[in-house]
Amino acid sequence: MLKLLKKTYYSLIFLGFYLFKLVEANLFMAWDILTPKMLDQPGFIDVEINLESETGILMLSNLVSMTPGTLVVDANLGKKLLKVHVLYMRNETKERAEIMRFQRMIKRITE
């Protein structure tokens, strides 16, 4: 019972976080489209998944696709790898840390 309450609480936090990220991502896209091009190159990074359930991986890929500047391109569930397209390769380490933070958030809900 307590576990269920805790999961509901974390799910509500996740929903709020998702909506916040949604607005942030769209403002970022608007700014990026309307300003002149930067010199940065887009590219791909591989990220490890440490989630167990498939629902969690679905939530993770959906959230990553909706955050500013990243898009999930392919997933390998056997090797637990996620291929992510990044708009600015300059921010690569920051994006990796961000995805790790999302995984910790989702782990609290699904496990």
């Binding site: 949604l22 991502a25 769209n26 896209m29 608007a30 990026d32 489209i33 309307l34 091009k37 887009p42 696709s65 909706m66 500047g69 898009l71 391109v73 397209h85 708009l87």
Partner: peptide
């Protein structure tokens, strides 16, 4: 904005970033 992004980006995946996020919003 997402239609402009579809024109302006010069890489398929960057174009998809513009269309998935901005259009659904």
């Amino acid at each position: 904005l997402s239609a402009i992004g579809l024109i302006r980006y010069d890489d398929l995946y960057s174009r998809m970033q513009a269309t998935t996020k901005a259009t659904s919003f």
